[in-house]
Amino acid sequence: MQSKEISVENTMHSFETERLIIRLLEQGDRGFFVSLYTDPKIMRHIGEPFSDKKAHSSFKTAIKLNTETPIKQLLWGIIDKSSKEICGIQNLSLHYEDKRVAEAGLILARKAQGRFYPEEALVGMVNYGFTQLGLSSIYAYSSVRNRASKRVVTKAGFHQFDETESKISFKIESE
């Protein structure tokens, strides 16, 4: 199968859901990004919290990746429409060998948890990936200890296809 390359110029890269605006990360999101990735409680099911230096470096890389052609990864800020505040970050990382396959990720601030924002944001991103980016399938992974993530990806339409001692693997395919 030939790999379809996706051009940044061919897509808008922002979308909305009922309660959320999803737009590419901006320079002004740096403090929020760093606060999420350095917070031990938020990172507990993802990995070791980043040092400030690593978080700042990762943010710089994220901003750069959002402008590259062909697309390798897109990172979006999740904005609460009512408060106009950023409350999370989500991303799609395209597979190296097949650019029609991507991996989804999502991280949410504590203040936004318990409001069903992750389900809404993930469904919006999946729809965007299939309709605007032409993806054929999207994968998501979760720690086996993270019951909330399992619930979110399942409610978003993903199906579990593998489980190891530490990780659960999910997949959703375009129709």
Rank of each mutant, 00 (worst) to 15 (best):
M1Q: 13
Y96G: 13
E175T: 14
E48W: 01
L25P: 03
K53C: 13
S142Y: 02
Q132V: 08
K155T: 14
I21R: 12
A140K: 00
S83M: 05
S142I: 02
K41C: 04
Y139T: 12
D80N: 11
D162R: 14
I71L: 10
C87P: 02
S149G: 11
K171M: 15
S143L: 03
D162E: 14
D29I: 02
F32H: 04
L133Q: 13
A148S: 12
Y128M: 04
K60F: 05
H45E: 07
I63S: 00
L106E: 10
L24R: 09
A140I: 02
N10G: 07
K60V: 08
E16R: 07
F15S: 12
Y37M: 10
L106A: 13
P49S: 01
T11K: 09
L94V: 08
N127F: 08
V152D: 02
L24Q: 06
S166W: 02
R23N: 02
I138S: 09
F32W: 08
Q73L: 11
S169I: 05
G88E: 05
K54C: 07
K41G: 03
E165Q: 12
V152Y: 13
G124H: 06
K81L: 12
I89T: 10
Y96I: 04
R19W: 05
F33D: 11
R115E: 13
G77N: 00
I168D: 07
I168Y: 08
E18S: 13
I46F: 13
N91D: 14
S51Y: 01
F158D: 03
E18C: 02
C87I: 14
Y139H: 12
R30Q: 10
K84V: 01
G47E: 06
Q113F: 12
A55K: 04
L133M: 15
T69E: 09
V101L: 11
G124T: 06
H56M: 10
V152P: 02
